[in-house]
Design a protein around this nucleic acid. Structure first.
Lengths: 368, 368
DNA sequence: CGACACAACGCAAACGGTTACGTAATTTTT
DNA sequence: AAAAATTACGTAACCGTTTGCGTTGTGTCG
């Protein structure tokens, strides 16, 4: 019994050269349709699987992409969010025969390790998810010239491919819904102002408030977790003019706010309406169920993945024509940049999911 | 400027042969300490990174492992569980320079794709997490002779490396705690009986009950989600002699049970005590907070990863001595199996985390 | 009918490392 | 002091696939 089926095994069996087999398998010209069929047949019979290492050694695709997400060490509920995105990414990539390697960038030392992954040419591209990936890391990745797509993040002054959700619109949905149902003192519980999501959702909140001539009040925590949500909730509920509604930048923080309200004997939604953002799976299982802005997480992942595949494809095309695929893309040589290399920013729409925590629906199963 | 630093670049710069450089870099004998230092220096200066493809082509390690988890398509809260395990796995592997590629095995067609990954020799080993990975898939992986470690799963009649938690003990902790505090009609809400976790936790439940001479009552759902938990909750609460406590196989199901209770106007914990299992992050954020059996998820991941690394190391050692690393390990040739190839089953202990949902405490206390 | 274009295929050189083997220089052994 | 063993390094083959180029056979055109 043979150890493993190689390309030359199948060549030998047909009495032809390995080169022809390679061409037949990759749908390259120069092989008669007849022979190609026979090659494919024998390949299937031998259950041949190309050795990826050998293939990528000669410069072909790795068929692997990196998914990078910052893990601050919080053992918290914000995880499921990126997990869902990851699912979308993986599914879309799988359709193209790609696989995903994880790169949970932690603090400090590990970062160097991740640069290794890409420097060793083990991935064709990378998807960077989350607002807390250090810009320095991103820039060093850009320097390598590797195809990159950002998710739920975007660098201001640098043009990168990214996929976002319409944070401002979503925030307006949430706040306007609260205002429509009679709330006036609506406060905002946000995360770090350095995060794009917090800024944009905060903008939407302020816009909606100002259009009604209402004053805005916001607190910002250094992370968006249940714990910081509790903290923010207490801070806002401590105000002299206590808010009657709180819009949290995040479902996790919204849950924290609800807990804070409960800790001081306030009922949600009777005494305080709460609206979150993201629609994580927990939102429909919590008590009360959480009104929130749904974002198509899996779709965002898919879009990012597909965009990345485009970039990879184009990258291979013209690196075949021109010189190396090495460190290109600095500001100077934008002139010779082909059109499809222009970065595109995709933003997906949002939907308000009305549940119990805002008290604005009929089927609210409210119980003390 | 050079495209990329190669091993022969550094050889040239020192006037030596590439072979010596390779030996120096890999700590192999046959290089003077002096020269090795200089090689290392130049390598660092050139920021040399070995090309993984070339290395693994000659049979060296891929420095990559697969993490496989079944995704039934439930967009539910059971996700965070394996996500945490994954974190442990990734951290432990990263320490050894390994990376993780995901393999979210879905239904049917995609499976073949994942076998491709390993057949293409892109990974040195695989970690299979979760009880719902098709045994057929596992067996076909075993056939390949690839190092394998199961997490939260184990095949009965086949000896495989696996890491579990002490399900029976944990279940006893939970049930005995309920019994100690006066509950007598304790029911069990389980998942598929085909799952090891459900069987073992059910065993622990029954043992504890029988020791007190109490009758057992259980329902089994076909998945362990919030939804099925609701269903199970209603089923149990519909019984003539209504349970005064429910032990759920899972935190997700426990949350569902709580919701079911609430739907019929029962208070938790006053009218019904609920205890879960796993201690997912949501357990301490839910309302009421969930009494549950904590299992060291991240630790389990680490243990699995370390075991896998051992297997990989041994695999490479004696495949260097003997013939191929190919499909070995069928039942016949167990005789020549070296000692360390014996499968080991690691089981980590559990801890009962007492919170509000069982009504047995004022503030959180831990027993175990 | 001869020159030519083109299709179909083989040959061999890469790709970037690793490693068995050979060889020269040094050390150890008897 | 000569033989043997050891050390330190170079040579070259090899891993499995892709690809530029050369070679052969077939059809087409002037």
């Amino acid at each position: 019994m043979k150890e493993k089926a190689g390309i030359k095994d199948i060549a030998k069996q047909l009495g032809i050269s390995p080169a022809t087999v390679s061409r037949a398998l990759n749908d390259k010209p120069g092989v008669s349709a007849n022979l190609r069929q026979r090659v494919l047949a024998v390949a299937a019979e031998l259950s041949f699987t190309p050795n990826l290492a050998a293939r990528s050694l000669v410069g072909a695709a790795t068929l692997t992409a990196a998914f990078m997400v910052h893990q601050q060490g919080f053992p918290v509920a914000s995880d499921p969010f990126y997990f869902v995105i990851l699912r979308g990414v993986e599914r879309a990539l799988a359709e193209a025969g790609y696989h995903v390697v994880l790169a949970t960038v932690g603090d400090g030392a590990i970062q160097a390790d991740h640069l290794r992954v890409i420097r060793e040419r083990r991935v064709d591209g990378a998807i960077l998810a989350g607002p807390d990936i250090p810009p320095a890391l991103i820039m060093s990745l850009v320097q390598t010239g590797m195809p990159l797509v950002l998710v739920d993040n975007a660098l201001e002054r640098t043009a990168l491919n990214c996929v976002l959700c319409d944070n401002r619109e979503g925030a307006r949905f949430a706040v306007e819904h609260l205002l429509w149902h009679g709330h006036r003192r609506v406060a905002f519980a946000g995360g770090p102002i350095s995060w794009l999501s917090t800024r944009e959702r905060g903008d939407g909140y302020r816009e909606a408030m100002r259009e009604r001539g209402l004053e805005t009040v916001a607190v910002h925590e250094d992370a968006t977790t249940v714990q910081t949500g509790v903290h923010a909730g207490h801070a806002l509920l401590d105000l002299e003019e206590r808010p009657d509604a709180i819009f949290a930048v995040n479902d996790a923080m919204a849950l924290g706010v609800i807990r804070a309200a409960r800790e001081r004997g306030l009922r949600v939604p009777e005494d305080l309406a709460v609206v979150g953002f993201d629609d994580i799976s927990m939102a429909e299982s919590s008590h009360p169920t959480l009104t929130t802005v749904r974002i198509a997480k899996e779709l965002m992942g898919e879009i990012a993945a597909r965009r990345l595949l485009e970039l990879v494809a184009w990258d291979r095309d013209d690196s075949g024509g021109a010189g190396g695929a090495g460190a290109a893309g600095t500001r100077a040589d934008r002139g010779d940049m082909s059109e499809h290399k222009m970065p595109v920013k995709s933003v997906v729409g949002t939907t308000l999911v009305v549940r119990a925590s805002c008290g604005c629906t009929s089927d609210a199963q409210v119980r003390g």
